[in-house]
Design a protein around this nucleic acid. Structure first.
Lengths: 195, 195
DNA sequence: ACCGTATCTGAACAAACGTTCATATAGAAC
DNA sequence: GTTCTATATGAACGTTTGTTCAGATACGGT
């Protein structure tokens, strides 16, 4: 008989978050019930409340941790004074990081409206930090005369939007390798911003 | 006393769809109840079922009509043999058409997963038709030696993703005019694909 | 003036929702 | 081996969900 009660389960917490992540990504936050999440974990709905105060916090925590991971990973990227090289690294980093976490990424920009106002503000701030990193690369290159960008703010959003598009179609094991995808996108981004 | 019953209301149907559109766009299909829609229209929930067999059909019809409008409008665009000019027109058309219908656009790509499988397949087919129109422009330019695109399928998705990004930030009356926005994006797209 | 019908109300339905809580149990600590 | 506590159950709560339907009402046609 499987042990179902009383054990110290350090693993139940992570499993709940994983199940919630997966279900939220597939069906959307509003369409997923606490009972569905509990069923996926193999537990009764009430048990979830040992690990989260409510459903909203479950979503918020998933999004916040994802954004913090993203910023940490970006921070760990080797610095580079040359703007073009920095941009190339950013493109590669963005594509690879996001393709490794399709569910987190999907949630992070699809479920923003299901956050409470305070939680939304925090996530939005983290997102802005990420955009600013790219914008400062574009600014640097623009001032150095390497880039010819009419509006760095829009270019930032344009580049990120284009790169994010990769997740709507890329499937590992498909026609193109990760290296090829990175090469193709870098080629487009590079030409789009270069003088 | 406002007339509340018995009248032939050719206007209730459109008002229901408009309210549903607005609410779905703001809060998401799953998070909006039939009673909320009814309240927005100023009617009881049961009355909605004179105009739609169920909630799902309400969403499906909104998405299908939007995609058909999009394809019709694209079809009405003046043909052009020169690929670069055709691409320029496409960029302008896409930006303007989509900015005029922010709610429809938002729903059309956010609520795909809330469609039943059959409905999803139909909408997806319409979307593919639209993508194919752009891809054939890129193909033409590629064969004519005007463009230097390593993969037209990916370039198609990349361009559309970039252009769609405009809707996440553009607000009419903001810093930039529509003409300026179009110019900026055309500049980026043009450089990204040109030889 | 009356009828027929399209339209809406208001109540009802069963099911599902997020959340709470008294109770049970299995493992850790002694 | 007993006790303590973290972790789970399972039932219950009040609300809300999508949907149905009998009855009421007001307009168009005659």
């Amino acid at each position: 008989m499987a042990r179902t009660q009383g054990s110290h389960s350090d693993i139940t917490g992570p499993r709940i978050r994983k199940a919630a992540l997966n279900l939220f990504a597939r069906h959307g936050y509003a369409a997923v019930s606490m009972r569905q999440i509990a069923k996926e974990v193999g537990v009764q709905a009430g048990a979830l409340y040992n690990y989260t105060p409510d459903k909203q916090s479950l979503l918020y925590r998933l999004m916040r941790e994802h954004m913090q991971d993203l910023l940490s990973a970006l921070d760990a990227l080797e610095r580079c004074d040359d703007a073009q090289e920095a941009l190339r690294r950013f493109v590669g980093f963005h594509i690879r990081f996001h393709l490794q976490r399709p569910d987190e990424v999907f949630i992070a920009y699809m479920e923003l409206r299901n956050l409470s106002p305070e939680n939304f503000a925090e996530i939005e701030d983290l997102r802005r930090q990420y955009e600013n990193a790219l914008e400062s690369i574009l600014d640097t290159g623009q001032q150095a005369g390497q880039f010819a960008i009419s509006d760095t703010k829009i270019a930032t959003l344009g580049v990120i939007a284009m790169l994010n598009g990769v997740m709507t179609w890329y499937r590992s094991g498909g026609r193109l390798s990760l290296d090829e995808v990175e090469q193709i996108y870098w080629n487009m981004v590079h030409k789009a911003v270069t003088a």
